[in-house]
Design a protein around this nucleic acid. Structure first.
Length: 448
RNA sequence: GACCCUAUCGUCUAACGGUUAGGACAUCGCCCUCUCAAGGCGGUAACACGGGUUCAAAUCCCGUUAGGGUCGCCA
């Protein structure tokens, strides 16, 4: 059984970095599923921060995953598991793994700065560990409330990362992390480990910004007797101007969706950026997952450029199946199109929305003005339409006859036809458009 | 400052001691063609720098430079 998780904090809208993490986890699981394994994708909402968590952000997470076609097998909220976390905290306190500290945030900040000034690593000095019961009583008498730190063993923490290979850190260089705040709430680190154990997470795929956390969390897994998952830390994406954080990453999926970017465009690009694979063009996440392999990812940070989505989108759009296209039209309350229209127009689209313009342009009863000098030619053309089937061969037969009759050729021959039939200088091949219009409509447009 | 990670065409990257340094996207040219696309064919284009090691280095080692991550009572 393979169990992965995506654990967003609903304190802001999903951005491209979040989305990529979600997708990478999903792709990893889907690949295993394609290979016949049992898999589960857990969506865990890290909503312990009551102040900053907002329902609309959480809703956006669901919308985003659904938009891209990612389905989760299990949904959990950290806010519903507080009692469980307390239980573990009490256990660790009893085991002496957690120790009370009384510095204020300001005092800690001062200590950090002082160590930095002395060119020392700004790690916590473990003052709390040296406090006697009397010291603590005295501090509490002063009105101080304790926060608790997790005591790190000074040993090597190593793991084989699915992306980075062998990784190793030493406890000595790391600060004992605070796991219980002064107000009794818990920061990210410990609850995440508790959840990973309780939900049976087997593989944790998250950004490179978590590698040091992984070292610390490995000690927590050990302290809790849980099975340590396999980790994979792909490098963070960078933006054109450097970092791609919350701000540059303001590229959220809603904007992309509204600009006509297909979900599969985003999926194809995000699942392959950072690998040497040619960007795959696939219709479904299932098919896309076949290309996926975390070991294909490099360790350097790739540059993500939104423009690449716009370059890829036309390739994704014209590859869309007729069924998908009609589903999407139906969602907008529009009637279905037939295969001939779709195939004629698809190579000319940059986004699916452009299709509606061509549907309208091909609909019955349209007349486009023909310049006076071409009016007679258009009439002649109408009269020369070949009898019999009106199909993809019709155009060649028709224009050959027209060429012979009028002596026109090249642009003089074709341009007036295009203008009369579509009203535009450019567009899909007339050969393909003719059967879409049909004989009757073709004639009426030519006769103006 | 400490601990980690990274450095190859414009971009994403392959190469795991010996290659004409490969591919994809972009770009340019040609073909197709009524147009714009699409499609087909082809071209331009890269080993950050300096030292070693070696018969041989993009590849291994050291240094320099340049990026990045972490060092939060954020997640």
């Amino acid at each position: 059984m393979i169990v992965v998780r995506f654990a967003p904090s609903p304190t802001g809208y999903m951005h491209i970095g979040n989305l990529r993490t979600a997708l990478l986890n999903y792709m990893f699981a889907q690949k295993k599923k394609n290979e016949g394994e049992d898999v589960s994708f857990v969506l865990r909402i890290d909503d312990t921060d009551r102040e900053r968590s907002k329902p609309e952000y959480e809703a956006a997470v669901y919308d985003c995953l659904k938009w891209m076609g990612m389905k989760w097998d299990r949904l959990e909220h950290q806010s519903a598991r507080l009692a469980r976390y307390d239980e573990i905290v009490e256990r660790l306190k009893a085991e002496g793994r957690l120790y009370a500290c009384y510095e204020t945030a300001e005092e800690l900040e001062y200590k950090r700065r002082r160590r930095l000034a002395r060119k020392l690593p700004p790690v916590y000095d473990r003052e709390g560990l040296r406090l006697t019961a009397e010291d603590r009583a005295k501090l509490e008498a002063e009105g101080r409330r304790p926060h608790y730190r997790f005591k790190l063993d000074y040993e090597e923490m190593a793991w084989d990362d699915m992306v980075r290979g062998h990784c190793s850190y030493h406890g000595e260089y790391l600060s004992d992390p605070i796991v219980v705040r002064e107000d009794g709430t818990l920061p990210y680190l410990l609850p995440s480990v508790i959840d990973d154990i309780d939900f049976g997470i087997t593989h944790v795929i998250r950004g490179e910004d978590h590698v040091t956390n992984t070292a610390v969390q490995i000690q927590m897994f050990k302290a809790l007797g849980g099975k340590i998952p396999v980790f994979g830390h792909p490098p963070l994406l960078t933006g054109k101007e450097g970092k791609l954080s919350k701000r540059t990453g303001s590229v959220n999926f809603m904007e992309l969706r509204d600009e006509g970017i297909e979900p599969m465009t985003v999926a194809c690009l995000l699942s392959s950026i950072g690998t040497s694979d040619a960007t795959p063009v696939e219709k479904t996440l299932e098919a896309l997952a076949d290309h996926f392999d975390l070991s294909k990812f490099g360790r350097a940070q790739p540059r993500f450029d939104t423009q690449d989505l716009f370059k890829l989108n036309p390739r994704i759009v014209r590859d869309l199946s007729l069924e998908t296209v009609n589903d999407r039209l139906a969602q907008k309350g529009m009637p279905a199109v037939d295969a001939r229209l779709w195939e004629a127009v698809a190579p000319n689209l940059t986004k699916l929305d452009d299709l509606t313009g061509w549907i309208d342009r091909c609909s019955a009863g349209k007349v486009f003005s023909v310049p006076d000098e071409d009016r007679a030619f258009a009439r002649t053309a109408a009269a020369l339409l070949p009898d019999g089937a009106f199909d993809e061969n019709t155009f060649a037969l028709w224009t050959a006859a027209l060429k012979e009759k009028t002596g026109r050729k090249g642009r003089d021959l074709f341009h007036p036809l295009r203008m009369a039939l579509t009203g535009l200088e450019q567009g899909p091949e007339l050969k393909a458009l003719l059967p879409v219009l049909g004989r009757e409509e073709t004639v009426s447009r030519l006769q103006g």
